[in-house]
């Protein structure tokens, strides 16, 4: 009997590879999930509240009700993701038990552990984690993350932090590649990343897993900007269903991610989308309102 292997790292990163060049959309109802799928989303993130509402309403943000997530899973044929709090491995066990396709260990929810992230190797379901720089990304991969995304500043509609995080990772990879070999050891120590993964990143010239943009993306131009900065795909949170015409905007962002290098098509898809989400400038947030610094 030939051995069948499930839950391997290859199978986990394999799904992330299939999502490349695509848009993953936050949805809070089965109806929104349908709209996202019809617009061409490659996956949906099932949530009770989008980040903009979590921000506005405050309180402790937790994993969503499994019943809601199951209804969304029933509504669409594309993969369904859901969020757990940083370090909350029991929420992750629950999501794995109901069969979600990907878990986001997310700073958008209130962290459950201020020291440790989830040991993601213990799960068959793949995980995506946020990162602001190369060290953070490689620490998450060491813990078993099969996909990385920029943190950005979720729920703001301001892309500035996503750009900062994408550029930080790219810049550090370029620096790593230009370093003398003997400098790599001290560099790994300095950024707090496992040496093995630092060598692998240097050899590949990119992160060892798929790297998406997230946090503040609200327009087709934002999405194409992140793609041109070298991201593999896009998460859109509040940007779609907090806008005037979600179906149209969702479809436009999908097209913009495919044709990210074609300004004529980008101009065409950007026309007449109605009001984007109103948003909030990241620069106007108080320090305690920022979500990106969560994670260690």
């Amino acid at each position: 009997m030939t051995q069948i292997l499930t839950g391997t790292f290859r199978v986990k990163i394999g799904l992330a590879q299939m999502l490349k060049g695509g848009v993953i959309m936050d949805v809070v109802t089965p109806e929104q999930a349908k709209i996202a799928e019809d617009a061409g989303a490659v996956a949906v993130m099932a949530l009770e509240r989008v980040p903009a509402d979590i921000r506005a309403q405050g309180g402790v943000a937790r994993m969503s009700d499994p019943e809601l997530i199951l209804k969304i899973m029933d509504a669409v044929t594309i993969p369904v993701m859901a969020k757990v709090r940083i370090g909350h491995f029991v929420e992750a066990q629950i999501l794995e038990a109901i069969g979600v396709d990907f878990i986001d260990e997310s700073e958008v929810l209130t962290p459950a552990d201020e020291e440790h992230h989830i040991d993601k190797h213990k799960f068959k379901v793949p995980f995506v984690c946020g990162a602001r720089d190369l060290g953070e990304a490689l620490r998450r991969i060491a813990e078993g993350a099969a996909m990385i995304r920029t943190k950005g500043e979720a729920g703001t509609g301001d892309v500035v932090e996503a750009v900062r995080h994408a550029r930080a990772v790219m810049k550090e990879i370029r620096r790593l590649q230009n370093m003398a070999e003997e400098e790599v050891y001290a560099y790994a120590k300095q950024i707090g990343a496992p040496l093995e993964l630092v060598w692998e990143t240097r050899r590949l010239g990119r992160l060892p897993v798929v790297n998406f943009a997230a946090g503040g993306i609200a327009t087709p131009a934002d999405a194409a900007l992140m793609m041109q900065l070298g991201m593999d795909g896009i998460f859109v949170g509040s940007g779609i269903f907090k806008s005037e015409n979600p179906a149209k905007r969702a479809a436009a962002i999908v097209k913009a991610v495919t044709h990210y290098n074609d300004p004529a098509i980008l101009a065409e898809v950007s026309k007449g989308l109605g009001e984007p989400m109103r948003g909030r400038q990241v620069a106007s947030l108080r320090e305690e309102e920022r979500l990106a610094p969560r994670g260690w």
Partner: peptide, 14 residues
């Protein structure tokens, strides 16, 4: 489509 189930059922085999 998706005939083997969800992502936790994804697999590799010779």
């Amino acid at each position: 489509r998706n005939a083997f189930g969800r992502q936790v059922d994804s697999f590799e085999v010779d």
